[in-house]
Amino acid sequence: MSGFDQTLLDEADETVRVRLIVNGRKVTCEVAPRDTLVDCLRDKLELTGTHAGCEMGACGACLVQIDGRAVHSCLVFAVQADGATIDTIEGLSESGVIADLQAEFHRRNALQCGFCTPGMLVNAQELLSRVTQPNREEIRDALSGNYCRCTGYETIVDAIDAVAKARSKGGGAA
């Protein structure tokens, strides 16, 4: 009736199987309940494009899409994501949906060490899918949780701004 099995309490560190659709492929993964999604992606699935920085929601390096929305993978336990669809920077790159953003980041030196870049791209993609023509203020606002220790942000905002304009004209960024 209750659905809760008391023996569960003695199995704190035993792994459980989670099923995910990661970058379009069905995968199953053995995780401990305390494993975060970012650790699962990097250590178990060897998708190391998602970066782990602060591991407490402050830096934005670990952003992925869960069911189409940008989420910090350090603030989700992998067990919570059981049954979810996850797209990482690898999937977004392979599918080509962010090719214009990547090219523009490259062209404008919007990355240096690249640690923050996957998170920046996931967030930029989410912004552009919700707002067709964001102004610079809105771009900055959307990136407020993404730290970059290298670029000074200006070129990142420039790149996203350029892609937003190009996309709303119906073409890719030049």
Binding site: G3, F4, L8, M56, V79
Partner: peptide
């Protein structure tokens, strides 16, 4: 930066969660 081990239960109803 890693949580201590815990068990995880996904509740389907309010009663299950309270119980």
């Amino acid at each position: 930066v890693k949580a201590r081990a815990f068990s995880y239960f996904r509740a389907a109803t309010i009663d299950q969660a309270l119980d």
